[in-house]
Design a protein around this nucleic acid. Structure first.
Length: 205
DNA sequence: CGACCGATCGTCT
DNA sequence: GACGATCGGTCGA
């Protein structure tokens, strides 16, 4: 199932097509390695946020604050912010610097380091909630706000291709979750999920 | 299963 | 002062 692990390089993120990138991230492996402790999981759910014209995007209207600065970073930048005061949400910044196209990683299928993930989340035994939902993904992989603004090309957090690829008919496209306040942009079909994966979060469309 | 609710706090108005 | 790109639990049908 897994061949050679090849870290995605800048050319993967440096493209003017955040929907395509969000779709292609399905099946890739998100890895963290802090102090030699490795945890990883296969991405099974993503959402695209398409820049200044997307009401659901933190950069809507060109809004630029200390919090969202990373969203305007070069391709491969990591953007992590706190949601509801207690969850960290991990995003991948794509496209050229100053073009705020990002992909939220919403769910993983755990691959390596499951015992460590259990420690981090305080769970006794693995279940589907371990890496289901964006808040849980960050908790299980040990990511927090201090990692925002770093990049995926040369650090402790990266995304790799192990040769695995989902077939076209295994992928579903739906509306994004929890963005009702984005009015008409809440209708955009920007969420990509692996059909039937028990790790995929809230089943809305 | 769906609806609702409390936790919790940084960020922006 | 209000509001989240959430989560896990409870309650009732």
């Amino acid at each position: 199932m897994s061949g050679t692990m090849k870290k995605l390089d800048e050319s993967f993120y440096d493209r003017n097509d955040v929907l395509k990138i969000a779709r292609e991230l399905l099946g890739k492996i998100l890895v963290t390695r802090f102090d030699g402790v490795l945890t990883s999981g296969r991405i099974v759910e993503t959402e695209a946020y398409a820049g200044e014209g997307d009401r659901a995007c933190h950069a809507f209207g060109g809004r630029r604050t200390a919090r969202t600065e990373a969203v305007y970073g070069p391709p491969g930048t990591i953007y992590i912010y706190i949601c509801y005061g207690l969850h960290y949400l991990f995003n991948v910044v794509t496209n050229k610097k100053d073009i705020p196209h990002v992909v939220l990683i919403r769910a993983l299928e755990p691959v390596k380091g499951i015992p460590v993930m259990l420690e981090r989340t305080g769970k006794e035994t693995p279940d589907y909630s371990l890496t289901r939902g964006p808040g849980n993904v960050s908790r299980a992989l040990g990511m927090n706000k201090s990692h925002s603004g770093r990049n995926l090309l040369s650090g402790e957090i990266y995304i790799a291709d192990d040769g695995f690829k989902y077939k076209k008919d295994q992928i579903l496209v739906t509306k994004r979750i929890g963005v009702e306040s984005a009015r008409e942009d809440a209708e955009r079909l920007y969420r990509f999920i692996v059909k039937g994966s028990p790790y995929v979060s809230a089943k809305k469309s």
